[in-house]
Each structure stands twice: as structure tokens, then as C-alpha cells.
């Protein structure tokens, strides 16, 4: 028997993997965007698990809207990334800190 806490702990693990990915990656900003996707996936799994165990479809509708917002966020993020690459020739995380100077 799989209880609600199994699903919740699974999505907590996915959340923490996404968090650690944001911490440790210096490669490029695309990886950071993908880590945000991972975190949103964990949140969505939480919503669906609660929706199933409480017998309420409102959680699934919330996931629907989260998917919409995430798609919009990814498209704008990738557009900004393209601009950054066009202007600086690199998408390393270090480039963003140019704003500090």
C-alpha cells in the first residue's frame, strides 16, 4: 500500500535535487531554468497526490494553471537567454555578474 507520505517524500527528494542543482551549477543558465522546471514538477506532484487522497479535483486544476505559467516562463527565459548570448557571446552564470560593476 502506497500512502500519501510516500508520494510527498518522493516529491520532496525531487525538490531538493532541483535546489542542489541551482546551487552547484556554473555551466550555463539553461541548466538553472531546467532546475526550476524540476522544482515545479515536485510541486505539481504534491498537488496531484493531495487531490487524489482528498478526492478533490481542484488540485489538478491548479496543476493545469502551473503548467501554463511554467510554459510562459520558459519561453520568456529562453528569449532573454538568446539576447544574453547575442550581446555577450556566452551564457555562463559569471556573465550575469557584470551588472555588479
Amino acid at each position: 500500500m502506497i500512502s500519501l507520505s510516500d508520494y510527498l517524500i518522493l516529491s520532496a527528494i525531487i525538490f531538493c535535487i532541483g535546489l542542489a542543482g541551482i546551487f552547484i551549477n556554473r555551466a550555463n543558465i539553461i541548466i538553472l531554468l531546467m532546475c526550476i522546471e524540476l522544482i515545479l514538477l515536485a510541486v505539481n506532484t504534491n498537488f496531484i497526490a493531495f487531490s487524489y487522497f482528498l478526492g478533490d479535483e481542484a488540485g489538478q486544476i491548479f496543476v493545469f494553471f502551473i503548467l501554463t505559467v511554467a510554459a510562459a516562463e520558459v519561453s520568456i527565459g529562453l528569449a532573454i537567454l538568446t539576447l544574453l548570448f547575442r550581446n555577450s557571446g556566452s551564457i555562463s552564470v559569471d556573465v550575469i555578474s557584470n551588472l555588479k560593476r
Binding site: A20, F23, N25, R26, A27
Partner: peptide, 29 residues
């Protein structure tokens, strides 16, 4: 971008990131 990321490596935040993730997992569990 594969040219520019070939030399990319993990930041010095690797121990901190793993520690934070482990603590959060334990708390959530």
C-alpha cells in the same frame, strides 16, 4: 554553447548545496 561550457565545472558551493539539500530532505521526511 558547447564550446563555451566545455571548461565549466561545479562551483565552490558544491558542499554547501549538498548539505542544504540533505538537511531539507531530512526535515521534510
Amino acid at each position: 554553447i558547447d564550446k563555451s561550457t566545455l571548461k565549466a565545472k561545479f562551483t565552490g558551493y558544491l558542499p554547501l548545496g549538498v548539505a542544504v539539500a540533505a538537511i531539507v530532505i531530512i526535515e521534510m521526511a
